[in-house]
């Protein structure tokens, strides 16, 4: 045996690798979405988002609960992304049928985005939107997330979005929906309605940790606790500013784990943004793998809930998550 090898064996015995384990003071709040019959709603089950005790995929430090996966349905698509017609067919023209299709693929949650209420697009009335919601609740027993105008910048959009969310909260009292978005500019009316009627809020802010915390403080002053809020700091798709989202999520999560309670709501990542990109058409892009790559980056940055567009992405993300051990939180 050469001398070097003897030397090596001795070293293998002498060197050790202490695990770089950090312990955290904070824990992420658990937000329960969906109420069953016995709980005063009509959902067949409920889902819990949040409960993380360490950073994502730092399993040597502790086991987090598994992330929750949502599939999205839109009540109106101006121009469907490439491959959507092939993937879903005509049903994308009919949100209720679309939800029935999506339901079969087993998402934990379904997100219905009622974007047509925007006065700047179809200007659908809130009353009509409520009829749609009624049908949707019939069409699926899964916990629901109901979103309105995702970027309420114009005054008209802000007031329409508020009106829509308030009505939804009242009409579907007790369903424990996740409704939003509410923003720093417009949150009070919807917060009150959610509190009174037992729903959760989607709190949206832009690429700023302090703004996200500020909104949680404002909501908490209204009586909405962190376990009733899901934070959204999504700013852009892969190639369109995703790095802002990733770093903001990472910083927010660290703040929460270090003990800042107002940073301690679970986070959602709207991966679906990635299917509406208009560049990178050459070579033919596979948008579901593009969405999967973005989802993976979001999950590794701390997303507790990811909202996906393609069924293939849901399968792929779910299968890769199944390779990891998860805890109960």
């Amino acid at each position: 045996m050469p001398q070097g090898q003897v030397n090596l064996i001795r070293r293998l015995f002498t060197l050790s690798l202490p695990l770089p384990i950090e312990s955290y003071r904070g824990v992420i709040a658990k937000v329960k979405i969906g109420a069953t019959k016995s709980e005063g709603g009509s959902r067949s089950y409920s889902t819990t988002v949040g409960g993380a005790r360490t950073l994502p995929f730092y399993t040597f430090e502790g086991l987090n609960p598994p992330p929750v996966l949502a599939l999205e349905v839109y009540d109106h698509l101006v121009s469907p992304p490439v491959g959507v017609m092939e993937a879903f067919g005509d049903v994308i023209m009919d949100p209720v049928e679309w939800i029935r299709v999506v339901d079969r693929f087993n998402p934990d949650i379904i997100n219905l985005n009622v974007r047509s209420i925007s006065p700047l697009t179809l200007n659908r009335s809130v009353k009509d939107a409520m009829h749609l919601l009624e049908e949707v609740l019939q069409a699926t027993g899964r916990p629901l997330m109901i979103t309105g105008i995702m970027d309420p910048i114009h005054t008209e959009d802000i007031s329409r979005n508020t009106e829509f969310l308030k009505q939804a909260a009242e009409c579907f009292k007790g369903e424990r929906l996740l409704i939003g978005p509410v923003t720093v500019e417009a949150y009070e009316t919807v917060a009150e309605a959610a509190l009174t009627n037992g729903h959760n809020l989607l709190a949206k802010s832009n690429m700023d940790v302090n703004q996200a915390i500020r909104l949680n403080e404002l909501l908490s002053a209204k009586g909405v606790s962190t376990d009733r809020i899901v934070v959204d700091v999504t700013t852009g798709a892969l190639g369109y500013g995703i790095e802002y989202t990733l770093s903001t999520m990472e910083r927010l999560r660290l703040r929460a784990l270090q003990g800042d309670r107002m940073a301690g709501s679970p986070m959602i990542f709207f991966v679906s943004e990635n299917v509406f990109i208009s560049e990178f058409r050459e070579p033919p892009l596979n948008l579901s793998i593009y969405e999967t790559a973005a989802a993976v980056a979001g999950l590794m940055s701390g997303a507790d809930l990811v909202s996906l567009f393609y069924v293939e992405s849901l399968h792929m993300v779910r299968s890769l998550l199944s390779e990891f051990p998860w805890g109960g939180g």
Binding site: L238, G239, G241, E243, F280, P283, P284, L285, I289, A293
Partner: peptide, 18 residues
């Protein structure tokens, strides 16, 4: 391309100076 492109973009984004 559909495998490599998302990776090249992700890499570029992550390594952008914040």
């Amino acid at each position: 391309g559909w495998v490599i492109l998302p990776l090249l973009i992700l890499r570029d984004n992550i390594y952008t100076d914040p």
